[in-house]
């Protein structure tokens, strides 16, 4: 009976949304959108319009997203911290293929992740995608050897300094060019489609990539070593 009610509810909501979407969505976009599309590449000098919107025009929202990611990883690491008296089961060691493959493939995956966030203003990608790829490389190491000790001190320092550097880049924009996270006056825009171009955007994306990569690595390490609650039930 409950399943029939839920199916009827889903079909009704789907039908209502289907009828309302042509009315609710605006037929044309606003003037701000046209300005972004027309002047976005000229203002920022990169080849990727999405990057110039995410880092320059809506850079403050990106700072908020980085903060939210930091808060969620801190919360998860706090809840899953190792407490005395709870033990994790001994894992079955991985086979030879997985161990050798992990050691050989970790370096290319990290280089690929770095390629993604360094070229964020030229090709699709950017800080968040590159950081996720780097965390996947660390995940491969953890799958091969569950008790591998990650350098937690180094990861904490990298994460904190990257977040700090992002805010410093914004303040540099405020001091030099007049608005927070400004792009035009701080660094030269350079030639189009070259690696060193587009002002301060590559620097911000490198910092975001390092921060997201180290954060997700710490989260994976905490989750793999978390003990199941045996007493709380």
């Amino acid at each position: 009976m409950k399943q029939i009610i839920s199916i009827i509810a889903i079909v009704t909501i789907g039908f209502v949304l289907w009828q309302l979407v042509p009315i609710a969505m605006p037929s044309g976009f606003g003037a701000v959108t046209h300005h972004y599309v027309a002047d976005g590449l000229k203002d920022n000098g990169g080849s990727n319009l999405v990057t110039s919107i995410v880092v320059n025009y809506r850079g403050f929202d990106t700072l908020g997203e980085v903060t939210v990611l930091f808060l969620s990883v801190s919360g998860a690491a706090f809840v899953l911290r190792r407490r005395s008296g709870l033990e994790v089961q001994e894992p079955v060691p991985a086979s030879e293929i997985v161990q050798t493959g992990a050691r050989m493939l970790f370096a290319p995956i990290v280089v690929f992740g770095a390629y993604i966030f360094v070229h964020g203003h030229l090709t699709p990608g950017g800080g968040f995608q590159g950081g996720a790829v780097i965390a996947s490389g660390v995940l491969l190491l953890l799958l091969a050897n569950r008790d591998r000790a990650l350098p937690h001190g180094l990861l904490s320092w990298v994460e904190s300094l990257s977040g700090f550097g992002f805010v410093l880049a914004g303040l540099a924009g405020l001091i030099v060019a007049g608005s927070f996270l400004a792009n035009k006056g701080v660094l030269p825009l350079g030639q189009w489609n070259r690696l060193v171009s587009a002002g301060v955007i590559p620097i911000i994306y490198i910092l975001i990539g390092l921060k997201v990569g180290s954060e997700l690595s710490v989260l994976l390490d905490v989750m793999v070593h978390a003990a199941g609650d045996e007493e709380a039930n």
Binding site: F128, Q129, A132, L220
Partner: peptide, 19 residues
């Protein structure tokens, strides 16, 4: 939308399943 596709690929291919 290649940027969104790359984000979905980077997160959904390894991290989300493993978590």
């Amino acid at each position: 939308a290649p940027d969104v596709a790359m984000t979905e690929a980077a997160i959904g291919a390894g991290l989300s399943t493993v978590i």
